[in-house]
Design a protein around this nucleic acid. Structure first.
Lengths: 137, 137
DNA sequence: TCTTGACCCTATAGTCACTACAGACTGTAG
DNA sequence: CTACAGTCTGTAGTGACTATAGGGTCAAGA
């Protein structure tokens, strides 16, 4: 194996990804299948490393694998307008905003439930009560 | 089937749950297996309806099925201290708080990416750039 | 009585994004 | 030569459902 070739383990350490996940990305078409050594080990280069870093960064930002696939396809087509990229990012941002709003109203309900808990017996528990069909607040 | 007995379809409509989900809850031990009619249809009563409503409400509040199982067990034991219930709710609340914080910092990054997008060509796209390994901002 | 159509049954597989095995092979250091 | 770390393929498991296939049941209308 030449000096610039990377094993799957190297790639994993460099990118903070599990080995299984890299193989999973390959099977899912996010990473191209690399060359193999004589012993049938995967042999990666810098381009693979860059591509995997891109995938990981996008995943960290919460893009779905489908969105990552789309972003990769777009990033490969350097002359295309970047409006499509912008659209994916904005769609994702509004999903995130919606989730934040949902979780905030959820938290308010949990706060209310917990504040009312006198911590006596379950029979008088306001948390259980507010979960039950006839005690909605 | 007597007048107070409910089919799975009734239960589904009353609680806004899909029929398949009710069967799934039964298989998962969240709902007791109901009596069957001669034709092998599930036959539910008010107690089932209440229990399913409890489950749905707890799920709406984001409790996991495991947490719901625990809450159900506790709610059945009316004489026990409600401290355990309080603990589950509080644990869940801190999970929710953590998720909100995570999503908020995520949103900030997305905002920054999107704000910088000049919407020209992909080659100059700041979104793609900030996803790529050597353009981390 | 027959038929239509809504409803129900079980069992199985698919979703998402991995993660965890089992069982075998390869490569390297002592 | 032997240990042991690393890699290979393939399969199954996670959570919380959802969807489908291939059947059976029930009530109403012709």
């Amino acid at each position: 194996m030449n000096s610039r070739a990377l094993t799957i383990g190297h790639l994993a350490r460099e990118t903070g990804t599990k080995v299984e996940t890299i193989r999973f990305y390959e099977k899912s078409g996010l990473l191209p299948a690399p060359a193999r050594t004589e012993g049938n080990y995967r042999s990666y280069d810098r381009a693979h490393l860059n591509r995997l870093s891109f995938v990981r960064r996008a995943r960290d930002l919460g893009f779905s694998l489908d969105q990552v696939r789309a972003l990769l396809a777009l990033s490969d087509d350097r002359d295309q307008s970047c409006a499509a990229v912008d659209a994916i990012a904005k769609e994702h941002r509004s999903e995130v905003e919606r989730k934040i709003a949902d979780l905030q109203s959820l938290k308010k309900e949990l706060d209310r439930m917990i504040d009312h808990c006198g911590c006596g017996v379950v029979a008088d528990c306001r948390i259980i009560e507010s979960l039950s069909p006839d005690g909605r607040t």
